[in-house]
């Protein structure tokens, strides 16, 4: 089989491109440390969500000095917490979200960021995020989940450190 010399050159170029892409992705994964959502959150039967100690009382919980965990339920058409009350965390924190669904498939994304996962009934999505700066982030469901899907939103607030301390004090 004869291949023209220019076409051979392009074949090499195409392979270089492919390895370059795979290489940068592997680098982000292994060195930068951006892991994919995986099975680490475990499976959880839809009927047992309300008995699971993480989701019986969906909440934000401090688990280390700058470490927090958020247990969240996505359901038609709200995030608990998130929609009726904000999700509050301090700046310079590392927050792990555990999100599960009690009905259909939903999405969970902090708008315009790479904090994004599917929420599938029967599975717990686990995703860890660094918040270095204070600010507000909209939470949206980005997977069609029924007629009022477009209304499914919430808010996450990253508080400046002083404000956070005040809030904690206030809660006493």
């Amino acid at each position: 089989m004869e291949i023209h010399k220019y076409e051979k050159a392009w074949l090499v170029g195409a392979l270089v491109l492919i390895f370059f892409f795979i290489g940068t992705i592997a680098y982000v994964s292994a060195v930068v440390g951006v892991d994919m959502v995986d099975d680490s959150g475990g499976a959880l039967d839809v009927d047992e969500v309300s008995e699971d100690e993480r989701f019986a009382d969906p909440r934000v919980e401090q688990v280390g000095e700058d470490e927090y965990e958020v247990y969240m339920i996505a359901q038609q058409f709200i995030f608990r917490p998130g929609t009726h009350d904000t999700v509050d965390v301090p700046e310079n924190s590392e927050v792990t979200f555990y999100v599960t669904s009690i009905d259909v498939i939903h999405g969970f994304q902090l708008v315009g960021t790479n904090v994004n996962t599917m929420v599938i009934p029967g599975q717990v999505a686990e995703i860890t995020v660094e918040f270095d700066e204070p600010g507000e982030h909209g939470i949206i469901c980005n997977e069609y989940c029924g007629d009022a899907h477009a209304d499914m939103e919430g808010l996450l607030v990253v508080h400046p450190e002083d404000e956070w301390e005040e809030m904690q004090g206030g809660d006493g």
Partner: peptide
């Protein structure tokens, strides 16, 4: 795209 996603600040996934 790489820059826009990972290096321009804002919250980012780490695990």
């Amino acid at each position: 795209m790489w820059y826009a996603e990972f290096l321009d600040g804002g919250p980012t996934v780490v695990g």
